[in-house]
Design a protein around this nucleic acid. Structure first.
Lengths: 209, 209
DNA sequence: GTCTATACAAGGATAGAC
DNA sequence: GTCTATCCTTGTATAGAC
């Protein structure tokens, strides 16, 4: 068998295990998840997991890396020349979409934060912090230029993050209270529109509709 | 020993165990927390826990009940005669204060929701749902009376819940990004003011300052 | 009421047959 | 590469001495 094919098979199996791990880790957290449970979901014997990943911790780390990679795609660069209203609207849309379409990623991220971010500390102190700092600078310039109301940019991003991730992390509560069993396509638009009305107006900007 | 005194001692010990349990359950979730870990934090031998609580599940339930009871105190009744701006400002304040002062309660609640609310389903379907329904009715009347802008009341409450609880559940991230080690007294006021500016303005109301 | 000892199941990880 | 068997640790829960 060619190396390329071997690599592909390995990648596919790894992915299958990661998918199962995601489901289980969401439900029980890191410590509460057993390899047995993950193996059962993946439809494999327990020992097979440890052939693909050296141990539980590194399986979890691989999963987190997967999630963080997807996450980073939404940390798009904001530049001074951009239109404040359009930029915020687009960013909020990306976050809502992410929360609805990949709730497990948001949930695992949220669990990490709740438990003190034992595995995300570096990521928070570097990637997230840098992105936030440069983005806040842009917001402050927009404010200085009179292009939007004076608001604390840091708290503005916290607001966008929390209000969007809520639909993932608190999915269970939201669905119960909305009398639904799952989100629908239109929910993304409605949530987006609501949040834009609130947040943009609060920033002294006009939502596009 | 009088029964009253026996009861008091029992209550005190139980409370000590519950405090320890809260710390451990926050860090590791339900399944990930061991009685041994809780006992160590409480400074007691493991078997002592099971004298005060019949088993792990009921210890956890007792803790949840404690939290829910504190929670319910903030579900104050909203009436049609109230002033919209003042009512929302007060409610947001209560939520911010709760998040900053009892972050563990918020974290355990959040973990429950992330994991599908296996122990809070009833609470969500009854208490929370009823409160939300009647509160949304009031908001809709305020809107019909032209006392505030037309907004989806359900999503409004989701926004208030998420944006305030964020400072508890994502405490670790927020503190890292704000270069702090812990919240200060003034943070409650600043967060409150920021959220009021955003949310009240978004509702077409005027924040008191 | 409090703690030690222990029963019994489940968990992480490895050895080694296939 | 894949699975069975197994080692050792930890976990929940109980029995019973103090």
């Amino acid at each position: 068998m060619a190396d390329a094919k071997k690599g592909r098979i390995r990648a596919e199996k790894s992915q299958k295990i990661l998918d199962a791990a995601e489901q289980v880790f969401v439900q029980f957290g890191y410590k509460g998840s057993s390899l047995q449970a993950i193996a059962t979901v993946a439809g494999l014997p327990k020992a097979n997991l440890l052939y693909y990943f050296p141990n539980k911790q590194q399986l979890y780390n691989a999963l987190l890396m997967d999630i963080v990679t997807r996450w980073n795609k939404n940390f798009t660069e904001i530049t001074e020349e951009d239109d404040p209203a359009k930029t915020l609207e687009r960013y909020i849309y990306a976050k809502v979409e992410q929360a609805i379409q990949y709730p497990n990623a948001s949930k695992i991220f949220a669990t990490e934060l709740i438990q003190g971010a034992p595995n995300l500390n570096e990521y928070l102190r570097t990637d997230v912090k840098n992105w936030l700092q440069s983005s806040c600078k842009i917001i402050n310039r927009w404010i200085a230029q009179g292009r939007m109301a004076k608001v604390d940019p840091e708290k503005l991003f916290f607001l966008i993050w929390s209000s969007t991730q809520h639909y993932a992390a608190s999915e269970t509560e939201v669905l119960i209270l909305m009398d639904k069993t799952h989100y629908q396509e239109q929910d993304i638009k409605q949530i987006h529109q609501f949040l834009c009305q609130m947040i943009l107006t609060g920033c002294g900007l006009k939502p596009s509709r």
